[in-house]
Nucleic acid binder design. Structure first.
Lengths: 200, 200
DNA sequence: AGCTAAATATTATCTTGATCATATTTTGTC
DNA sequence: GACAAAATATGATCAAGATAATATTTAGCT
């Protein structure tokens, strides 16, 4: 033998990590294999030892991004803290302010996914559902009726808001995000009016 | 002279029309100049007589798409009919069912715009605002308080819904759209509860 | 130490698509 | 009906980028 299997897996992960970030930030077509491999500290030639092609990588990267979205991580550890609804909403909308490092695949890949094959769309859907479920779970615990519907509505708003905001010009983007955040939190509060409010 | 100026302008419009549709359906990178010119009934060589390059065309096409969005057309003629809120919502969400011919630039170009220069983003913003204003106008006439906020929220939902739906796999897409439509119409109704409802 | 196989790097190929240069057609004018 | 000017078409160039072939390095084994 030679390199340990662990090593290869680590390299693969490095590629996936780089790919997910780049794809999420720029989309499929605007990212080149050379860029990805460079970010993973290799040259492009090494690529085909790990994936069969760009499309195949994209598929894997989408799943990677999905299961590494911030709301998917630490699923059980931060139950009491990060799951606080407002924190989640704020964090989600904080794109462009402080969390460019973890772009959500939901809006960043939304256009790509629409043009891609079944597997990619499924990965997208899983990602979407995971956030909805996460939110719905919290809402249920707080006694919300129609937690599912409210959660789905909220996620649509979040995704739509961020996607649109990214296309706005600077001065207006920030106001738009603020208004949206307020609206979303308000909706959540009214959905919870029989229990404790979210805002505080 | 030779060709009438009108002719050239018509050709330019043909190119814009083709480009807007293709860009809206597939995005900037996935559309080739040859495709566009073919759709405009010419060969690719003729292109540079009308535009300085692909980017420049994109910019113009975005504005074209914006001012030709279905809600922007017939701004004053259909005041009584098409402006009916529910019809507008339904029509907007009907993408994928019966109106593939008029894809809305708002979700189809959202990812592109985010990566492009100021002018494109401005065009996007104008497009967005025009729909918000249109809705807000209707809501105001119906006596809604906070028409602006409700309109903006609604448009975010519409755009988010369609964008996400496009990335879903077939069986679930249609249910998702139905649920969203119901939620959106409900929100509009409650925003109007002091006047006539939208639905019935 | 030296061998082996896998991992990575280097370099080459091949396709696609934007752009450009040159030809041909078209239309209005005389 | 021929000419001029502009529009359109044809074919060439050029670059980018995905893929593939070949070379080199690395780590474990004996």
């Amino acid at each position: 033998m030679s390199y340990t299997a662990k090593h290869k897996e680590q390299t693969r992960q490095r590629i996936l990590h780089a790919a997910a970030k780049l794809f999420c930030s720029h989309g499929f077509d605007r990212v080149t294999l050379t860029q990805i491999m460079k970010k993973a500290n290799m040259t492009h030639g090494a690529f085909y030892a790990h994936f069969s092609g760009k499309s195949s990588l994209y598929e894997a990267a989408m799943q990677f991004a999905s299961s590494n979205a911030f709301w998917a991580r630490d699923d059980k550890q931060t139950e009491g803290k990060e799951t606080h609804i407002k924190a989640l909403v704020t964090r989600y909308l904080s794109w462009g302010r402080n969390d460019k490092e973890h772009p959500s695949p939901l809006e960043f890949l939304v256009t790509d996914a629409a043009h891609k094959e079944e597997k990619v769309r499924q990965a997208y859907q899983v990602c979407f559902d995971s956030l909805v479920d996460r939110l719905a779970g919290i809402l249920k615990k707080r006694g919300s009726q129609e937690a599912e519907a409210l959660a789905e509505e909220t996620v649509v708003s979040l995704v739509g808001t961020v996607a649109i905001a990214r296309s706005f010009t600077q001065p207006l983007q920030s106001d738009f995000l603020k208004r949206a955040q307020e609206r979303i939190v308000n909706r959540l509060n009214s959905g919870l009016k029989n229990s404790e409010p979210v805002e505080g």
